[in-house]
């Protein structure tokens, strides 16, 4: 469904991604893990063309979207839940959702809105509140809801666990699981390797802008190298707390 080939991205001479290739099949839940600064956000942003690509191609559903503008990419059926959620904090929850459906006809937006409020009841309860007043977890739900408003076939998720308490992280992942089971394709990037790999079918490991490992999520979870580099640290942090 999504095929990213030999992607190179640099920020003014500083290479952030080198020869990154990632593919996601229809209906798959794929997680890409990597530590802070590995280039995860850069990967998603360059797929969406928020950040320019230096080299490489992105094919989505057989269409070459490499050079599409962001808004065109959204129309073609991809949506991004950005890092840090980035809800419109001075707009109401409902307005945020409405903006997510900016490219969609009004009637469809109305139906979609009902659907999303059913899925995330808290967004309905707080519909008229400013999004900036929501808790981190609620904002994450809102960011997901907003992305779903464009009726995407693939959802790109950037670091959904960032800054959230473990229980809330679990809640967010459970929602993603429901979405995946309903047939939505998901490409998720995370530092929180254990959660990301637990819910995914397949995974990649990104280090210093290169893919260094890939395979079944369960195999990566059991891999000694992954344990040492990505899971070990988390376990240690848990101990220290």
């Amino acid at each position: 469904m999504l095929e990213v080939k030999s992607l190179h991205v640099s920020y003014g001479g500083v290479q952030a991604l080198t020869n990154v290739s990632v593919h996601v099949s229809k209906g798959e839940f794929v997680s890409l893990i990597g530590s802070n600064g590995a280039g995860k956000t850069t990967l998603l942003n360059s797929i969406m063309n928020i950040v320019g690509k230096q080299k490489g191609t992105a094919i989505f559903d057989g269409k070459d979207v490499t050079k599409f503008g962001t808004s065109q990419i959204v129309t073609s059926g991809m949506a991004l839940v950005p890092e840090g959620r980035r809800v419109f904090s001075n707009m109401s929850v409902l307005e945020n959702l409405e903006m997510g459906g900016f490219k969609r006809p009004a009637a469809e937006v109305k139906n979609k809105l009902e659907e999303i409020v059913k899925m995330f009841p808290v967004l309905g309860e707080r519909g008229y509140q400013m999004a900036g007043m929501l808790s981190g977890g609620e904002q994450q739900m809102l960011a997901i809801g907003r992305a779903l408003m464009s009726n995407p076939r693939i959802l790109l998720m950037d670091e959904p666990s960032m800054g959230l308490a473990p229980l809330v992280i679990k809640e967010v992942y459970e929602k993603l699981k429901v979405l995946a089971e309903s047939g939505l394709t998901i490409l998720l990037v995370e530092q929180n390797a254990s959660m990301a790999l637990k819910y995914a079918q397949r995974g990649y490991v990104l280090e210093n802008g290169r893919i260094i490992m890939q395979g079944k999520a369960s195999e990566l979870l059991g891999d000694n190298e992954v344990k040492r580099a990505y899971l070990g640290k988390e376990y240690k942090e848990k101990w220290e707390r």
Binding site: I50, T70, P82, N90, E95, M99, G100
Partner: peptide, 23 residues
Amino acid sequence: SKYGKAMRASFDDPIAAETCGIN
């Protein structure tokens, strides 16, 4: 209005607005 709201969304966070498909 839809475009007025898109304007506020763009004031609020231009990158997030782009990800909504707002030019």
